[in-house]
Design a protein around this nucleic acid. Structure first.
Length: 287
DNA sequence: CATTGTTACTAACCAACCCA
DNA sequence: TGGGTTGGTTAGTAACAATG
C-alpha cells in the first residue's frame, strides 16, 4: 500500500534553519539564502510544526537552540548533505560539477597557508560557493563536523581524532625565529605558544647550553608569538609555515637545536563521504 | 536619557502553481 | 476555472544595544 507522509520535511526550511544555526542569526540566514528575514522566521516556524518540535528558544533579539533543536540540526544537516551528495553524483554523471566547498581550519593555517589553495580552487571552479570558516582549534573543528556544518576540517595533528578519518596534507618543523633587525640573539628571551607542549625545545636547549631557557612570555596563538618576535620582543617558537609569511622580518635562529616536526591533516566524520568539491580542494595538498 | 540601528516576531497580503 | 497550498513580501511592533 502506498504510504503518504502527512508532514514531509521541507529541505528548503531545513536549510534556512541550519544556516541560521551555523551563522548565529536569522537575518544572516536570510541574507545567505537571498530571502527576507521574515521568510526564514516563518520557514523555521513551519519546520517546527512539521517536526512537532520546538527547535529554537526565542529571546528578544536572539535565539538559542533547544535540546530538540540540537538534535534536529545534526539530523537535518546530515540530510542536507546527503541531498547535496546526491546532487553531486547526478551532476558528475552529467559530466558537470560540484557542490559547495564547506570547511574550517585553524587561524594560523588560514593566515599562513590557505590563500594560494583557495585562489587556485576559485580559478578552476569559479561557480562553486565557498563556505570557509577560520576558528580556534581542533576541538571546535570536530564540533562543526559532528554538527554537520562543514564537510571537512584542517587541523594540526594533536590529541584524539577518534571517530574521524584523517589524511595528512602538510608537514614541517617547529623553529625558533627572531627579528631580522636585531643583532645578538643570545640576549633575547623566548616567547612560547601556550598551552602547547614545548618540552622538546626546553630539553634540547638544556642539553645544548646546560641551563634552562629564559622564557619571557607564553601566548595562546602562534601568530601572536610570531608578531611579538617580529617586533623584537624575543625569540618565537612556532611552525615554519607561520614564519614563511614574515620571512622579510623574521630569521631562523638556534638552528643547531633539534626541534619536533608537526603534521597537519584533513578531517571528516568516519564513514561519511565528502563532496567532490572537497576532494578536488584536498587534492591540491600533495605531500 | 533620547535616538538610532539591529534583530526577531506576527499579521495581512500576493503570485505562482496544482488539482478537481 | 476557482479554491487551496506554498513560498514569498511588506508593514507594523517590540526588545535590546550602542551612541551622543
Amino acid at each position: 500500500m502506498l504510504m503518504v507522509m502527512s508532514n514531509p520535511i521541507n529541505l528548503l526550511y531545513a536549510k534556512y534553519f541550519c544556516d541560521a544555526v551555523r551563522l548565529g542569526s536569522i537575518t544572516a540566514s536570510a541574507r545567505a539564502n537571498f530571502v527576507t528575514q521574515s521568510a526564514v522566521s516563518q520557514g523555521i516556524s513551519k519546520l517546527e510544526n512539521m517536526l512537532k518540535c520546538t527547535l529554537l528558544a526565542r529571546h528578544p533579539n536572539q535565539f538559542r537552540l533547544t535540546p530538540g533543536g540540537e538534535e534536529a540540526v545534526r539530523g537535518l544537516s546530515e540530510l542536507l548533505k546527503k541531498a547535496d551528495n546526491l546532487q553531486d553524483e547526478l551532476a558528475e554523471n552529467n559530466g558537470s560539477i560540484l557542490g559547495d566547498l564547506s570547511f574550517a581550519c585553524t587561524h594560523s593555517f588560514a593566515l599562513g597557508l590557505i590563500a594560494p589553495y583557495l585562489s587556485r580552487f576559485r580559478l578552476e571552479n569559479p561557480r562553486t560557493k565557498i563556505n570557509f570558516q577560520c576558528i580556534g582549534g581542533p576541538t571546535k573543528i570536530m564540533h562543526l563536523l559532528k554538527m554537520g556544518i562543514i564537510d571537512f576540517g584542517i587541523a594540526p595533528k594533536v590529541g584524539d581524532f577518534s571517530g574521524f578519518e584523517q589524511t595528512y596534507i602538510y608537514q614541517g618543523s617547529y623553529g625558533l625565529y627572531r627579528s631580522s633587525q636585531l643583532q645578538d640573539e643570545k640576549e633575547l628571551p623566548f616567547i612560547l605558544p601556550e598551552p602547547e607542549d614545548t618540552t622538546t625545545f626546553k630539553e634540547a636547549y638544556l642539553r645544548e647550553y646546560k641551563k634552562e631557557p629564559e622564557i619571557f612570555l607564553k601566548v595562546g596563538s602562534w601568530e601572536v608569538v610570531a608578531n611579538l618576535a617580529a617586533e623584537g620582543l624575543g625569540i618565537g617558537y612556532f611552525p615554519d609555515y607561520v614564519a614563511q609569511k614574515k620571512q622579510h622580518i623574521l630569521i631562523p635562529c638556534y638552528q643547531n637545536l633539534l626541534l619536533p616536526k608537526y603534521e597537519i591533516c584533513s578531517l571528516h566524520l568516519a564513514g561519511m563521504k565528502i563532496r567532490k568539491s572537497s576532494r578536488i580542494f584536498l587534492s591540491y595538498f600533495q605531500l
